[in-house]
Design a protein around this nucleic acid. Structure first.
Length: 200
DNA sequence: AAGAGGATGAACT
DNA sequence: GTTCATCCTCTTG
């Protein structure tokens, strides 16, 4: 499958992009192993007006710098000192938008994913969660900034199946209560309705 | 230089 | 439902 083109990431409507990323294939080639997951759950984060976004108020730090770069690159950060969370940076340079990938459906090389997760049998906790899918696909903070649009990139996004609007559900984002009103209630989480691989 | 806290997940009661 | 592991980043002094 071809990688998503640069035009896909240039829109400043990060909420719409979060919907369009459903059904897209997340492909990694890390440690000599190719693994593939189909995106089934996403969340939109939008600076400068979204307080839940790390780049809220256009706060620019070494960590968030990649979010201010061109869309189509990876933003990976360490959460709670334990989990590596993978985001897709969107919008043109200096507009810090990103889509958190919250869950994927395992598609290719499940054996390697199981091994990375320390599991022996296929179960929902293989990839249904932002920290879980990163571990299954081998993504760590060291890959932050990776260009997702190159065909030979270690992390890339490939055209998948189009998910119709009627098959998409939405709701509040997870874990953003501390951001307070009204940010915590913005319905910027999207998932494939009939997928059993969503996080909750 | 030091301290607080986080876009989670697992293991509890 | 609750607790807590674990460490990097950012803020403050």
């Amino acid at each position: 499958m071809p990688t998503l083109p640069q035009e896909f990431f240039r829109s400043t409507d990060v909420v719409q992009i979060a919907r369009e990323l459903l059904g897209v294939y997340l492909v990694t080639n890390i440690g000599g192993e190719k693994t593939v997951g189909k995106i089934v759950e996403t969340e939109a984060y939008r600076a400068p007006d979204d307080r839940a976004c790390h780049a809220w108020n256009n706060r620019r730090t070494a960590r968030t710098e990649v979010m201010f770069g061109e869309g189509g690159h990876a933003y990976v950060y360490l959460c709670y000192g334990v989990h590596h969370l993978f985001n897709v940076v969107t919008a043109p340079r200096d507009t810090a938008h990103a889509v958190l990938i919250r869950a994927v459906e395992p598609v290719e090389n499940l054996g390697v994913m199981l091994q990375r997760r320390g599991m022996t049998a296929l179960a929902k906790n293989l990839t249904a969660g932002p920290g879980l899918l990163s571990q299954a696909l081998g993504i760590t903070t060291g890959w932050s900034g990776t260009n997702l649009m190159l065909p030979d990139s270690p992390i890339r996004l490939e055209t998948g199946e189009k998910i119709s609007d009627s098959s998409i559900a939405s709701g509040k984002r997870i874990g953003v209560e501390p951001s307070g009103e009204p940010f915590k209630d913005w319905p910027w989480r999207f998932w494939v309705k009939d997928s059993k691989w969503v996080s909750r």
